[in-house]
Amino acid sequence: MTTRISARFTDLAAQGRPGLVTFITAGDPDTETSLEILRRLPAAGADIIELGVPFTDPMADGPAIQAGGLRALAAGQTLAKTLEMVRAFREGDDATPIVLMGYFNPIYIYGVPRFITDAKAAGVDGLIIVDLPPEEDAELCLPALEAGLDFIRLATPTTDEKRLPTVLAHTAGFVYYVSITGITGSAAPDANAVGTAVARIKQHTALPVAVGFGVRTPAQAAAIAAGADAVVVGSALVEAVRKTLDQDGKATANTVVAVETLVQELAEAVRGVTRQAAE
């Protein structure tokens, strides 16, 4: 089945360049501002968008994304509102892939069958659920795949040769390689080590490999993109939101523009790279 995600990676391969995957937190700092940021990401250069679903216990996320999630929750963001954001985005963009990234609890509370139906109808293309291991595939992964949603799995520096086939068994869309051990935004990745790791993963799968966690600057993004099919930037964009808020934590005239500008800079850097990963 061709999905928006697979179609986008096919396009990137035809262009001979790596992709830029951008992460923002849904509802940060409020639903209206967040939706405007979401709408501007593709034109700014985002090839794929990860939309974070706020959760009260984001164990894989660093301080920046944790804070963004808390801002969103305080502003009243819910999973239902996040799906509504995707639906509103799709009114003007039917091509850019959107991946929901988060934790299983909000989906469990929402109800898995209902969530899958509503996510598909809203225009969601894939899921990254960081706290659902392969051993729990029956909970969400398998029914999501059956409905046509790509289920994207994380591989890490500690995922060894014995574990990797299990991780990849039901992965679809792309593999998300976590470039560091630890939480998001906590350290800078080593581009050489990442290239080696991506090559190792590609010995086990034909799926594209996107690399994230710790990528903050255009220079870092370009260095990582040289050895991957795509690079993921998240914490830096969430920080760009935070730095523009007023003393009450509300959006200002600079909030949307700051994120848009950073994405443009990241995209320019990444698009200057000739992709090696798929050669």
Rank of each mutant, 00 (worst) to 15 (best):
A67Y: 07
D246N: 15
D57P: 06
G126N: 08
A223W: 03
V257Q: 13
Q15K: 14
E161A: 15
I5N: 02
V53T: 07
F9C: 07
A258G: 05
Q247M: 12
K81T: 01
A172I: 01
T205M: 14
A43I: 06
S34I: 02
A206M: 09
F174M: 11
A67P: 00
G173M: 04
L262P: 01
D47F: 13
L140G: 08
T156I: 08
A278I: 03
V124Y: 05
L237I: 05
A144G: 13
F23A: 07
D160G: 14
E50H: 10
E265N: 14
E136G: 04
T252W: 13
Q264H: 10
P143S: 05
L168E: 04
I224P: 00
P208I: 03
S6V: 06
E268Y: 08
A197F: 07
T159F: 12
R40Q: 11
V233P: 07
Y176W: 12
I224S: 10
F9L: 09
A226P: 00
A251F: 06
M1H: 14
G92C: 02
A219G: 10
T196R: 15
D47Y: 09
F104H: 12
V21G: 11
V194P: 00
I201Y: 05
I183Q: 15
D11R: 15
I152G: 03
A228E: 06
V99E: 06
Y176L: 11
S235P: 00
A223V: 05
T274K: 15
L142M: 09
G62F: 07
K120F: 10
E36Q: 14
A46P: 00
D30A: 04
Q66K: 14
N192P: 00
D150Y: 11
L51D: 05
Y103K: 04
P165L: 05
N105M: 06
A119K: 01
A121C: 04
A14Y: 13
T274Q: 15
E265P: 06
P42F: 09
E265S: 15
D137Y: 08
L149W: 02
